[in-house]
C-alpha cells in the first residue's frame, strides 16, 4: 500500500473525528463501553445490547455483499450458524473452553464454508445467487438436523461459558459478573474490531472494486477486473465476519439449535436488518440490527401476531424507504440543516 493512501486514511480518520457524526459515533462508543456501569443498567440491558452488537456485526457483514457488491444472499445462516455450531461441537467433544481458541475455530469454520459455498454460488448473480445460497445453506441445516447423534438434532448444543485467557470468570465472579464484566466487553471489542476492519476493507481499493462491479459488472469486466473472483472474495469477507457475529451470538445465548441459527429464515432476518438500516450506508445495518431486535421484542410483547408486524415493516421499508433508517436519518439531518440555515437567514 502506498504512502499516499496511508496518509489519506489518517486524514479521513482525523476529519471524521471532528465532524458531528464522527463525534456522535465516538460518543456512542464511550456510552457502549460504560454501559454496564451506568445507573439503572441491569443484566438485561447489557444482554440486549450485546445481542444487538453480535447481530450488528453480521448485518454489516451481510451488507458487504448486498450494499457493496450487489449480491443478495439467502444463505448467510450457513456462516452465522456454521461458526456457532463449530464452537458448540468443539465444546461438546473436546476439553477446550478458552475463548481465544474458540473464536478462531468459529471464524475458521465460517471461512471454510464461505470459501466452498461462495465458490459455487458466485458463478451466478441476482436471484440465482440468492437461491443457490439458499439451497446450499438449507442443505447444511437439513444435515445438522439429521445427524442427531453427532449434532444433537433439533435440540441443538449447549454453549457453556468459556474461560478468557485461561481465567474462569464465571467461577470467580458468577455468571452475572462474567456477562457484564467480560463477555460484554469481548463482544464490544469484537464489534469494534470487525466494524473497523470491514470499514478499512470497504474503503480500500478492494471495496472500490466491489462497488464498480455492483454498478456495472460489464464495465468492470471491460477494464480487466476478474468479476467472479472478486465476488467470491466479497462472499468470503462477508461470511467470515458473519461468523464472528455467530460466535458472539452463541456465547451470549448459551445454547444453539438448528432452528435458531441455521434455518434460512435467519438469513432472511439478516437481510431484514440490512434493509431496515439501509443498504446504501456502511453503518446503516448497525442501526438496522438494533431496530430489528428492539422492534421484534416490542412486537412480541404487544401481540401474538408479531410476524405480521415484522412482515409489514419489512414490506413498507422495501417499498417506501429503501434507504432504511440511515436514509431517514440523513433526510432528517438535511431537514434540520435547512431549518438552521433558514433561521440564520432570518
Amino acid at each position: 500500500m502506498s504512502q499516499d493512501t496511508d496518509t489519506g486514511k489518517r486524514t479521513v480518520i482525523q476529519d471524521s473525528l471532528t465532524t458531528p457524526s464522527g463525534l456522535a459515533a465516538a460518543g456512542l462508543v464511550v456510552l457502549g463501553l460504560g454501559l454496564p456501569y451506568l445507573p439503572g443498567t441491569g443484566q438485561f440491558e447489557v444482554f440486549l445490547t450485546a445481542q444487538i452488537l453480535a447481530f450488528a456485526i453480521a448485518a454489516v457483514a451481510f451488507n458487504v455483499l448486498l450494499g457493496y457488491t450487489g449480491l443478495l444472499s439467502f444463505g448467510h445462516a450457513a456462516f452465522f450458524g456454521g461458526s456457532a455450531y463449530a464452537v458448540g461441537l468443539v465444546l461438546r467433544y473436546t476439553e477446550i473452553r478458552e475463548l481465544f481458541v474458540l473464536l478462531p475455530i468459529g471464524i475458521l469454520a465460517a471461512a471454510v464454508l464461505a470459501v466452498i459455498i461462495g465458490y459455487i454460488s458466485v458463478r451466478h448473480t441476482e436471484v440465482y445467487y440468492a437461491l443457490l445460497m439458499l439451497a446450499l445453506s438449507f442443505l447444511l441445516y437439513v444435515v445438522t438436523v439429521k445427524l442427531y447423534t453427532f449434532t444433537g438434532g433439533t435440540d441443538g448444543v449447549p454453549i457453556p461459558s468459556p474461560t478468557v485467557a485461561g481465567v474462569d470468570y464465571v467461577a470467580a465472579w458468577g455468571y452475572s459478573g462474567f456477562l457484564q464484566g467480560v463477555l460484554y466487553y469481548a463482544i464490544v471489542l469484537a464489534f469494534l474490531v470487525s466494524i473497523a476492519l470491514m470499514w478499512v476493507f470497504m474503503n480500500s481499493p478492494f471495496g472500490l472494486t466491489l462497488k464498480t462491479i455492483r454498478d456495472s459488472p460489464d464495465r468492470a469486466r471491460a477494464i480487466g477486473i476478474p468479476v467472479v473472483r472478486y465476488r467470491w472474495y466479497a462472499t468470503i469477507v462477508s461470511g467470515v465476519f458473519t461468523g464472528v457475529g455467530g460466535v458472539m451470538y452463541a456465547l451470549l445465548n448459551g445454547h444453539v439449535t438448528p432452528g435458531t441459527v441455521l434455518h434460512w429464515s435467519r438469513s432472511g432476518e439478516l437481510a431484514f436488518m440490512a434493509v431496515l438500516g439501509g443498504v446504501g450506508s456502511f453503518f446503516g445495518p448497525i442501526a438496522g440490527a438494533g431496530a430489528f431486535i428492539l422492534l421484534r421484542s416490542e412486537a412480541q410483547q404487544l401481540t401474538e401476531y408479531w410476524h405480521f408486524v415484522m412482515g409489514l415493516v419489512l414490506f413498507l421499508v422495501v417499498v417506501f424507504e429503501p434507504a432504511g433508517v440511515a436514509g431517514l436519518v440523513k433526510r432528517g439531518y438535511r431537514k434540520a440543516n435547512e431549518l438552521i440555515d433558514e433561521r440564520r437567514r432570518e
Binding site: 443484566q43 440486549l48 433439533t154 441443538g156 439449535t257 432452528g259 432476518e269 421484534r296 421484542s297 412480541q300
Partner: peptide, 26 residues
Amino acid sequence: EDVAQQYRRLATQENYDIILGYVSSA
C-alpha cells in the same frame, strides 16, 4: 425466535416471581 432473550427479559427485566412453561425440548 429468541427464547433466551425472552426468558431473560421476563426474569431480570420484568421480575416475575415464577416462570411456568415450555413445550419444546430445545
